[in-house]
Design a protein around this nucleic acid. Structure first.
Lengths: 330, 330
DNA sequence: TTGTAGGCGTTATCAG
DNA sequence: CTGATAACGCCTACAA
């Protein structure tokens, strides 16, 4: 690999001049510039990003922490981040945290040890305090979580509004008895979605009852277990909202196994609108989680903070309902 | 950030000694070693990976080129790669190629400009020649594609065997009239899968006919269009194999729209066994593409080549059939 | 076993 | 506008 010295030598100038033309400085004689460019061509010279990083203390790389990589949600997120960052010649280094505190912290240290200029995090296990502390070490942006002290760094969905929309839609379709399978009580987004559900009920003058509520952990199996549990209770319902699509899919296959017709016997609404929502049968009406946009914004936030760009930022995202075939008029 | 100088000063030794203990050299006095370690602790010193890279001409980072990130297949692959590489303290830099030659080449240059030690590629657009040329620049490993000159770097599925298994299964269930929706003729894996299908037919004494074949491009819509087209032809069939799960899902929803009962009126087999196979209805019998393992192997191949490790490598993968509910006995 | 000195490839400062 | 020269932080002969 050619170095800047060799280019300088070939062009008959000093290496400072080469550095200048490489970095697009205006203050260089046109003739010399041409000579340098020619030499660069001939030697097929490529600057060493490592040496450059050492000299100016910037790596142009951004670390991204995700819970998992093999799930559609994170795929969308990564795609958005990679595309917007690469368009600005920034590199994306990934690291997975597996929803485990120790592993997340380890992943973060790993990323920092690589001298990332900044971090984008989708963390479930770290505490708010951890995140605040982290920001004092390097710029970060946070997806899908709101940390009050770090508001300008957070990009999240209006989960409450989403929960509200899902249930209001069912009510508008004539449903009055609506069951709800939520995510775990320890997760803020799960509770916000549930709160939205309750608000919609209240607005329609329907009392919320714990009997209609099952708490899952966002997994497909929880949808199955949840529906079974609800059906075994002494209640009747014509509709079910699930706090994510995986549970909704589980509930659907369970319902079918139990001989229920969908959506005639049971209307179902999901949440997140991940890819499976299009593929289950009937196609699932679901609240959209615009993760792509959020990933893009988180990346732009970093571009603003670290590289002095000036992108317009939006921190809170609307959770629109995507209508498909899983809800029946009653 | 503390530097190695400061550690040396605090420990009262030279920086070479610090460097030695940091790199685990045995040839250093126990007392000094302790002093150094103490100083490292106290200063919370972390070596600069950038400076280290510059000095020893290695970045410990591997570039990965994928077509897209937002699809389950690549998610699995990335997860596998990230996990096996990070276990060895190597970093993963991602770059997406969007199935476009210019963009893939651009992505590769981008990765190389970052001084990656090696590349892992899932390339659809680059030619064999491009890949051979690339390998002369830096170590690479290739997923899901066989380049004869680069055999030891390739990790792929036995697509022919997979196609064979899918069709043989249907034949074993009594089907004789089996339609096939393939991937595009320009893709090697698509043609191999089709070849396997033909072999199974031949083995059973069933003649292959173009009338039973529709060529798609691996998209959901192609499954829809394909089934419609096949049904419009003057033929009868009780089973359909689709060269991937997306087309299978499309065919399923199309079949249902047309009033066919699944699997009573039409048995369907998919390919790749991506996540949606579990979520469509009825759950889809599909040929498994062990992308996770392949990703892991591609990563280990790099570890062997670049970092002198000695992992056992497997280059060709078996395509097992995963039985679910989409095939009927006739 | 330990320390000194030079090099890795750039950028940045400061004279000229 | 151009060219020495000193960082940047670490590694590694080589010398002591």
């Amino acid at each position: 690999m050619a170095t800047i010295y060799q280019v300088a030598e070939r062009a008959g100038v000093s290496l400072s001049t080469v550095s200048r033309v490489l970095n697009g400085r205006k203050t260089v004689n046109a003739q010399l510039r041409e000579k340098v460019e020619k030499a660069v061509q001939e030697l097929n010279y490529r600057p060493s990003s490592v040496a450059r990083s050492l000299a100016n203390n910037r790596t142009d790389s951004i670390g991204v922490l995700v819970a998992e990589l093999h799930t559609p949600f994170f795929g969308e997120m990564m795609q958005a981040i990679e595309m917007t960052l690469r368009a600005q010649d920034k590199h994306v280094i990934i690291s997975v945290g597996h929803n485990d505190l120790a592993k997340e912290l380890d992943a973060v240290e790993f990323l920092i040890s690589r001298n990332c200029d900044a971090l984008i995090l989708h963390s479930e296990a770290m505490s708010d305090k951890d995140l605040v502390k982290l920001q004092s070490r390097l710029p970060i942006s946070i997806i899908n979580r709101h940390v009050p002290e770090l508001h300008e760094a957070c990009f999240c969905l209006d989960n409450e509004a989403g929960g509200y929309r899902a249930t209001r839609h069912l009510i508008a379709k004539g449903h009055r008895n609506i069951a709800y399978i939520s995510g775990p009580a320890c997760k803020a987004d799960a509770m916000q979605r549930l709160a939205g559900h309750k608000r919609a009920l209240q607005e329609a003058g329907i009392a919320f009852s714990d009997a209609f509520h099952f708490e899952g952990r966002f997994k497909e199996e929880d949808g199955i277990e949840g529906l079974k549990t609800l059906l075994a209770r002494d209640i009747e319902f014509t509709a079910l909202v699930c706090a994510n699509d995986w549970m909704a899919s589980g509930a659907m296959s369970c319902a079918r196994d139990l001989g229920l017709r969908l959506p005639e016997d049971l209307s179902i609404v999901g949440f997140d609108d991940v890819v499976i929502a299009h593929h289950v049968y009937p196609k699932l009406t679901s609240v959209c989680n615009p993760i792509y946009q959020m990933g893009e914004m988180a990346a732009k936030c970093i571009l603003n903070k670290v590289y002095n760009q000036k992108h317009q930022l939006q921190h809170l995202y609307d959770a629109e309902l995507v209508l498909r075939d899983s809800v029946n008029l009653v």
